[in-house]
Amino acid sequence: MLPRKELGLLLLLMLISGITAILNPLFLSGVNLLDMANLIGLFGIFSIGEGLTIITGGIDLSVGSMFSLLGVIFIDLVANRGVSWPLSLMAVLVGGLVLGAIQGFLITRARMQPFIVTLCGLLIYRGAARYYTDDSTMGFGYGDSADTLSWLASGRSFGIPHSFIFLIIVALILGVVLHRSVFGRYLFAVGKNEEAARYSGINTNLVIAGAYVLSGLLAGISTIFLVFYTNSVSPSTFGNFYELYAIAAAVLGGCSLRGGEGSILGIVLGTALLQVLQNLVNILGIPSSLNFAVMGTVILLGVFADQQLQKRRETAIAMGAQRARPAGSVVTAAAPKSGG
């Protein structure tokens, strides 16, 4: 049985998909579905990392710029410096990890606000990437593309894009970590009430920093997928705004910016919904300039509806509690709905 929030999101996703499919049956064509699956995979991986930081009550604004910086470094290593692909891959993953760790350190040890730290990360990494390449686009030359890695990142197995398969794997692993492990419980605890978590003996700094390290690592992984998706990196535009997609997906998926709420399934569904919306704009012939406007409207409505439902649920609980008390007999007449 799905939790209420995820179920609602799934229904919304199906509803929008259904309407789109009726308006234009091409929506359900194999090509289109696989294309969407690929994009969901690409965006979902780093959105999960974003979601983790949001669950701790923070945010990571730096992922888009990380793609750019790690992307140009990766292409430079492979195409210009002839470094083997496994080493280059390691470099990118370690790079993401280290950047995440630095941000985590600044947020926990130096007690700086996540918004500020990662905003500065956004600016610094982007600038570094542009300086590194003299602001010119980098691409793979003939013959030096890492064939194996290229296949791993942008190929298909059983017709399914690898990015999508990888997203499922990441989601399963982190789903278990977030919802079943001690670390996952701590993430929620820290997000809900950092002080009480500390008073329960939890090393809150380590937990929070851990979320940023994971976000950095997942950004490193995403870099590889994105680089092979576009096959070149223009440092000034590569990954622009992607952190906002990630935040949108996480929020749509039930993560509260106040922290302590969210689920991996929700984030994946949120990512899927965003990609369906983008796709719908194209496939229904809506001017693509309206792309962001459509996305914004749906997120706004979605979050609004969710809050209204939650408020109603809380009122119902409060009424129930009132009814259970002997003396509070004033409001009971209004709520005899559920017979229990």
């Binding site: 419980r185 605890a189 009430n193 002080e195 978590a197």
Partner: peptide, 24 residues
């Protein structure tokens, strides 16, 4: 409410928060 409990979390998770590793 500020330091002793995570009030939005359920009773069971508050009780086990400090010794969670023992229940794994």
């Amino acid at each position: 409410k500020r330091s002793g409990l995570i009030v939005d979390m359920p009773v069971v998770e508050n009780i086990t928060l400090a010794s969670l590793r023992a229940y794994t």
